[in-house]
């Protein structure tokens, strides 16, 4: 950051120490952020919805992000500071995988599984009335929410089918994993290999699966036609 430039930028806070600059910069962030936005905003115009990304022709909108956030349908990506961008990144990944699942005609899950998924979502959002209000407020419909959960289950099945087998560790690998993480298992009270073996196997399988999926996703990303229209404020 060009501190000198900011000191000389004519905001009237000159001759202060570096520490004072920092403090005042923080204040300016708050003040200017609030000041500038209403000036540019015009007369109470509200952005209802917009396109944030297009993944092989499938549109991801701001309302999708709102709904995914409100219903906690996705876990925002870890990297990056912008919450919208983090959710968009996850929705893009989801769409890439869903396209593959559709391409291979992944079967529909059982109705009961979908109902369980819906119940989980309702529980997360709390009371039933709140769910309806959240639906109305986010541009989501009950049918689309159901489709979303159904597709999530299809995605899970598809990933299990595709990567489940490859991620299965051998006994030697489980033992090696245990040895590498023995201290951690000890802390968890799993003192012997026999005790720790199921957990070690499960963790190793999960780590491998994640690595395989991540690698596969990266390749999908390179092949796919993805247009990201939502650029965090520094770029847009």
């Amino acid at each position: 950051m060009d501190w000198a430039g900011i000191r000389d930028s004519g905001f009237g806070i000159r001759g202060l120490s570096r520490s004072a600059d920092l403090k005042n910069l923080c204040v300016l962030c708050v003040l200017c952020g609030c000041l500038v936005r209403p000036v540019g905003a015009g007369a109470q115009e509200v952005l209802l919805d917009r396109v944030l990304a297009i993944v092989s022709g499938e549109v991801i909108t701001l309302s999708d992000v709102r709904a995914a956030t409100a219903f906690q349908l996705v876990t925002p990506a870890a990297a990056g500071g912008d919450p919208v961008a983090r959710v968009v990144a996850r929705l893009i990944e989801r769409q890439l995988i869903l396209n593959e699942a559709n391409r291979y005609a992944a079967p529909d899950p059982a109705s009961a599984a979908i109902e369980r998924g819906l119940a989980d979502v309702r529980q997360r959002v709390s009371a039933g009335q709140a769910v309806e209000a959240t639906l109305a407020g986010t541009g989501m419909t009950a049918a689309r929410l159901r489709d979303f959960i159904r597709d999530d289950l299809r995605i899970d099945n598809y990933l299990d089918q595709r990567f489940g087998g490859a991620a299965q560790p051998t006994e030697e690998e489980v033992a090696a994993y245990y040895r590498a993480h023995q201290a951690q298992f000890d802390r968890e009270g799993l003192a012997t290999f026999e005790q720790a073996s199921p957990a070690a196997r499960s963790r190793l399988r999960e780590e491998r699966r994640e690595a395989l999926v991540a690698d596969w996703l990266e390749r999908l990303r390179r092949r796919a036609d993805i247009r990201e229209l939502y650029l965090p404020s520094s770029k847009d």
Binding site: V39, A41, G42, E45, V46, L47, S233, D236
Partner: peptide, 11 residues
């Protein structure tokens, strides 16, 4: 400028 603002709700 409006697009640059990350918020969608105008103050």
């Amino acid at each position: 400028a409006r697009r640059a603002a990350p918020s969608v709700v105008r103050n």
